[in-house]
């Protein structure tokens, strides 16, 4: 199995589309951070303007944590796209290339094929999130240094002590990995159904965008279905920046997202094991 995962990773990282995500992050994040650095504290003031009337602020709130938090907050659509680009190709790509025939005629089970590809896809997702974390926090540290993190949440302003932040980021990125894992496994599921990678990429993105739009529109009927949309739980990463942390909410979101991954993967496995390979 490890051999298979290695092979799948090798295949993933020999395709140039894999690097689109890494390159996009390597361009996008520095652009955002340089822009913030150019703007200076103005980009922070929209958060703090109101309280600055009552309080005097001293210290470095415009720091790598603030910037990384901002970035994590604004990439809800972009990162899923980069994930589907690879995850949607995992199975469909073999169909398009016709390489299912040389792969499935080997003495390996379809379970092993699906699972190794899934794990390889998850590793890619992990590396992309890690890359995002390293670039945002690393470049942010270089440009802005560290400091306390100011967060706006549930009508509260939360300031987290400098030494109380990093672990929250680790967990938040971990949670982001789980969210993106759902995206990846959905794209993977669609990838098992068709013979072309474009379909899974577009379908997955369409679902995410539709779900996000439904969640955003303040109509009762939409709001009542919101709890049934997995995208509603993808923002829970920000709960790690609450003080105190709402563990119940996080456990709920983690379980729901993990259940989605299991169900999507289960479906993929079920479909793929029955699938007649005609390409």
């Amino acid at each position: 199995m490890i051999k298979l995962i290695n092979i799948e990773l090798y295949k993933i990282f020999k395709k140039w589309r894999t690097y689109i995500g890494f390159i996009a992050i390597a361009i996008l994040i520095p652009m955002i951070e340089f822009a913030i650095s150019f703007e200076g504290t103005r980009s922070l003031n929209f958060v703090t303007r109101e309280i600055q009337q009552t309080f005097i602020f001293v210290g470095n709130l415009l720091n790598t944590y603030f910037v990384s938090y901002l970035i994590l907050n604004s990439l809800a659509i972009h990162i899923p796209f980069l994930i589907t680009l690879v995850a949607g190709d995992l199975l469909a790509g073999e169909a398009t290339a016709g390489t299912y025939r040389i792969l499935i005629t080997r003495p390996i089970s379809r379970f092993e094929i699906v699972t190794s590809k899934f794990i390889a896809g998850m590793i890619y997702t992990f590396l992309l999130i890690l890359w995002l974390a390293v670039i945002s926090l690393g470049l942010g540290y270089f440009l802005f240094g560290t400091g306390e993190l100011i967060v706006l949440k549930s009508g509260s302003i939360i300031v987290l002590a400098k030494n109380d932040i990093f672990w929250r980021f680790l967990l938040a990125y971990g949670f982001a990995l789980l969210s993106m894992g759902v995206v990846a496994s959905l794209a993977f599921l669609f990838s098992s159904l068709v013979e072309n990678a474009i379909g899974p990429i577009i379908t997955t993105m369409a679902i995410i965008i539709i779900f996000l739009i439904i969640s955003a529109i303040n109509i009762d009927i939409f709001q009542s279905i919101k709890p049934y949309l997995f995208t509603s739980y993808m923002n829970t990463w920000s709960s790690f920046f609450d003080n105190p942390i709402d563990t119940t909410e996080i456990i709920k979101s983690v379980s729901i997202l993990a259940a989605h991954i299991i169900v999507f993967f289960g479906f993929t496995l079920f479909i793929f094991r029955q699938k007649d390979i005609l390409t």
Binding site: G98, R101, I102, T105, P107
Partner: peptide
């Protein structure tokens, strides 16, 4: 799996990575 380990095959046109 046991059987496939003793078979080599070309199916239709030869496609590779």
């Amino acid at each position: 799996i046991e059987i496939l380990s003793k078979i080599g095959a070309i199916v239709e046109k030869p496609d590779f990575y």
